[in-house]
């Protein structure tokens, strides 16, 4: 079969720091969320090795801990390398080619942003792009030395991507109330009524978003399919853990503007003259036990 092996080879031909090309990472736009893909995921959020994704945010070994500390010696490095200074707080579920991620990263340089994408090649593209961007930033001469473009805040060190099926494994990655923002941008509309359970927003899945979101956290949705917009608004607004943010307030949110402009799909809709429907929801506090 033609395709993947060739593409893979082409992907690897680029030299380090060169931006990956989308055309070598294309993949069919639909994936079956119910199937057992060969996914890798931690058995528990604490088992996730975030250090590989955000090496700049790895906790340094405190000077006070002696190297032969009986607690630390077992796997001294293992233990500290896996420790992070920060946790992921922003998740872009179904990040695609990562347009939103790379637009958000400089705007919140101290916040860890993670894209989650079910398509292997696409997730790989985002990872390669993050690597390339980081390298570019590192190699760029400091502004004082007369650089053409000013350095990007955070140097893209705070953005990464993993391949994951969030509909099944969201709680494997994030602990309770860990996230402050979740983006659901241009999700697969799954037009057929029979496939509605495959939609990223559903009455039952919303409970999982509520679980990983801290009270006050936000869910941002955008789509060009009006039916899906109505569906998402209906289901999120009806969920007792969420309340829709008034349109005026939502428009004032910088994230909404970025989401409209910078997502890859958003640009495509723009080109085709489509419409974009935005809705933002706030995670409410859990009520007391009855």
């Amino acid at each position: 079969m033609a395709g993947p092996p060739n593409k893979r080879q082409k992907r690897e031909e680029k030299h380090e720091g060169q931006m990956p090309q989308k055309k070598f990472y294309r993949q069919r736009a639909h994936a079956n969320p119910f199937s057992d893909h060969d996914l890798t995921y931690p058995e528990h959020p604490s088992a996730m090795r975030w250090s590989e994704h955000y090496p700049h945010f790895v906790a340094t070994i405190p000077a006070a801990v002696p190297k032969d500390d009986p607690i630390a010696t077992r796997d001294y490095n293992e233990y500290y390398v896996a420790r992070m200074e920060k946790r992921v707080e922003v998740a872009d579920i179904g990040c695609g080619f990562g347009g939103l991620l790379f637009a958000l990263a400089p705007r919140m340089p101290a916040t860890l942003i993670l894209g989650l994408e079910i398509r292997t090649s696409v997730a790989e593209f985002v990872q390669d792009k993050a690597k390339a961007l980081r390298l570019q930033q590192q190699q760029q001469p400091p502004a004082s030395a007369g650089a053409e473009t000013p350095p990007v805040p955070g140097g893209y060190e705070n953005v990464s991507c993993i391949r994951a099926n969030t509909m099944k494994f969201l709680p494997n990655f994030f602990a309770k109330a860990q996230l402050t923002k979740i983006f659901l941008c241009f999700p697969d509309p799954h037009f057929k009524a029979r496939k509605h359970k495959a939609r990223i927003v559903s009455a039952t899945l919303n409970s999982e978003y509520a679980f990983v979101l801290a009270p006050g956290g936000m869910v941002y949705t955008i789509t060009d399919v009006e039916d899906l917009h109505v569906w998402m608004v209906e289901h999120l607004a009806a969920h007792p853990s969420f309340a829709r943010v008034a349109e005026g307030e939502a428009e004032g949110d910088e994230c909404v503007a970025v989401m409209r402009r910078e997502t890859e799909e958003g640009k495509k809709v723009e080109r085709n003259g489509g419409r974009k429907f935005v809705a933002v929801f706030r995670r409410l506090e859990d009520p007391a036990w009855p």
Binding site: S202, E234, A238
Partner: peptide, 25 residues
């Protein structure tokens, strides 16, 4: 179903089928 309106909404809906997709999507 949490979120879904009850039977009423379904009944009021236009019986004629309208695809959710459009030429724009």
């Amino acid at each position: 179903e949490p979120g879904a309106e009850d039977g009423e909404a379904a009944k009021q809906e236009d019986p004629a089928f309208k695809p959710s997709a459009t030429v724009l999507t």
